[in-house]
């Protein structure tokens, strides 16, 4: 959504010239990730449902081992094109701690659509203990929480590799860290999460790393802004309405002022 919207908004704001210098200045980053085309960009962009469903599969089978998605409920998956029975079955595949019951005890029961996504660790300390002291971030709004949003997350997922030969001499990879071309500082605790053929897509799409990265970024972009499609759809109507209204108000103004000019 960024580039065209940015251009559009800059034009709209030409009057508010004060802002113009601010826009590029926000991009204080080590490396600017290359811009890619996403289905959800632009005035009429929507989430590619097939890609988002595949991305959910990647999240479920890969990311969910460490990363929580604490603001998302299973019921939300309906928006990705899963029907009620599929959502129920998906939720039931998880074990949820509920209670206390009449005896004052917590108990386990199968997940329901009204449950939040099950978290991989009971608390942050447990998450750190299992991950060399690093805390896997919550992914609910991660796409909104990073400069360059989806481009950055994609670049990060596909940006692993060996330390390049032209790296500065004082660059030293700390033990347990991994080189990533796009992570600030280039040292990231998360090991390369994706490898070719890691998941088996039901729709037969070849699951190579770039494909899985694209899919999971689409899914996470939806998770960060589930309201986006409704927002843009309403926005088109609102803006068109306001333009017509402004035109009418201008006509009224002209008519009222005719005897003054």
């Amino acid at each position: 959504m960024r580039a065209p919207v940015r251009t559009m908004a800059s034009v709209a704001l030409a009057a508010a010239f004060l802002l113009a210098p601010v826009l590029p200045a926000r991009a204080i980053e080590d490396v600017v990730p290359p811009h890619r085309h996403w289905s959800f960009q632009g005035f009429f962009g929507t989430f590619d449902r097939a890609a988002a469903q595949r991305g959910f599969q990647v999240y479920k089978e890969v990311c969910a081992a460490c990363h929580q998605l604490r603001f998302i409920y299973y019921r939300d998956l309906g928006a990705l094109g899963f029907n009620d029975d599929e959502v129920k079955a998906l939720a039931a595949g998880y074990e949820v701690t509920a209670g206390p019951n009449d005896q004052g005890e917590m108990f386990k029961r199968p997940g329901q659509p009204s449950d939040r996504f099950v978290t991989p660790f009971p608390n942050d300390q447990a998450a750190r203990a299992a991950n060399n002291g690093a805390l896997p971030v919550d992914l609910s709004v991660v796409v909104k929480a990073r400069e360059h949003g989806p481009d950055y997350v994609y670049a990060l997922l596909t940006g692993y590799g060996d330390v390049p030969k032209d790296a500065p001499k004082d660059f030293k990879l700390q033990p347990g860290m991994n080189y990533n071309a796009f992570f600030p500082g280039h040292q990231i605790a998360m090991p390369p999460p994706l490898s070719d053929g890691q998941v088996a897509y039901a729709d037969g799409t070849k699951a190579d790393v770039p494909q899985m990265a694209r899919d999971v970024v689409t899914f996470l972009s939806w998770a960060a802004e589930p309201e986006m499609e409704a927002r843009k759809e309403m926005g088109v109507k609102v803006v068109l309405f306001l333009i017509v209204l402004s035109g009418l108000l201008y006509a009224v103004k002209r008519k009222v002022w005719r005897d003054v000019h």
Binding site: M1, V5, R6, M8, A9, A12, L13, L19, V22, L23, F43, K144, R231, K232, M234, G235, V236, V238, V239, L242, I243, S246
Partner: peptide, 15 residues
């Protein structure tokens, strides 16, 4: 409001 709506609906986090 046209300018305002462009921000709200199409670039709510730009600023």
């Amino acid at each position: 409001m046209v300018v305002y709506a462009l921000f709200v609906f199409f670039a709510p986090n730009l600023l």
